[in-house]
């Protein structure tokens, strides 16, 4: 258990008496692609919200690079390199595809509060934004309005926008949800490419994706950790089969 980059200790979230996340101890190793799986309502998305402080935890701690980050606001956590995506594709629909990525790059200039400066000062970032778009194969869509993109492309754009922050740890919430087979293959390829030199924690329902992509898997059920290990270990666990894979096992 060396090189743990992201860790939770006794992480708990209660909503009016309902315990959504129940003292979860999670350890994500540096460089791993780590999956968080579990049936609907297991608390996976809530864990994401707690890790990035989109929700305050009732109890417990989140440690990122050995530092307690539970008290920091979400934007500060993102600046530290722990960057999340969302379950529903989160893009800026009325902006161009290029502008979507450029908004994420804008930090670098330090002029984000400069209301007196022309937006053409941001054109310095276009080259860099185009490179990011090329990395997810979106360069031909750069000038398109984002709402016009097909769903799979929007997810790719979201990935490029996340990568613009040069995250150390990426939290991806169901990156292949609602996609056709071809799109899934492409996004898996993109994630594998993006994960080089980074750590990824992802919520994922598609077990093919999990088995082919992930180094380590944590299974959540009813808010607490049911099992942890690599795909073979986890899928052999009878508790997991009962709680989660019971109906899925037929497909695997």
């Amino acid at each position: 258990m060396s090189n743990v980059i992201l860790e939770t200790r006794g992480l708990t979230k209660e909503f009016n008496g309902f315990t959504a996340v129940d003292s979860v101890d999670l350890q994500v190793q540096q460089g791993h692609i780590h999956a968080l799986i579990g049936p609907n309502g297991a608390g996976k998305s809530t864990v994401f919200n707690l890790l990035t402080h989109f929700l305050p935890a009732t109890r417990g701690e989140v440690l990122y690079q050995g530092q307690v980050i539970a008290k920091l606001p979400p934007n500060r956590i993102a600046r530290l390199g722990l960057v999340r995506s969302f379950q529903i594709s989160a893009v800026f629909g009325q902006m161009s595809v290029l502008e979507n990525v450029r908004v994420a790059l804008q930090h670098q200039l330090g002029t984000s509060f400069h209301f007196w400066k022309s937006a053409s000062s941001l054109n310095h970032l276009n080259q860099q934004a185009m490179q990011l778009l090329e990395s997810v194969d979106l360069q031909d869509f750069a000038m398109r309005k984002t709402v016009e993109l097909p769903y799979g492309r929007k997810r790719a754009l979201e990935l490029a926008t996340t990568l613009a922050l040069e995250p150390t740890v990426m939290l991806l919430d169901e990156p292949t949800q609602g996609m056709g087979h071809e799109d899934v293959e492409r996004v898996v390829g993109l994630i594998r490419k993006a994960a080089v030199g980074r750590t990824v924690l992802m919520v994922e329902h598609n077990l093919h994706v999990v088995s082919s992509l992930c180094d380590r898997i944590t299974v959540l059920a009813r808010g607490s950790v049911l099992a942890e290990g690599d795909y073979a270990t986890v899928s052999a666990n009878p508790l997991v089969r009962e709680a989660y894979m019971g109906k899925e096992a037929e497909h695997v």
Binding site: A90, F92, M95, Q106, S112, H114, F115
Partner: peptide, 16 residues
């Protein structure tokens, strides 16, 4: 302006 770009982003999708 650069500030206006961030405002647009906030209007479009605040959590993002």
């Amino acid at each position: 302006s650069p500030f206006g770009q961030i405002l647009r982003a906030i209007r479009e999708n605040e959590p993002r």
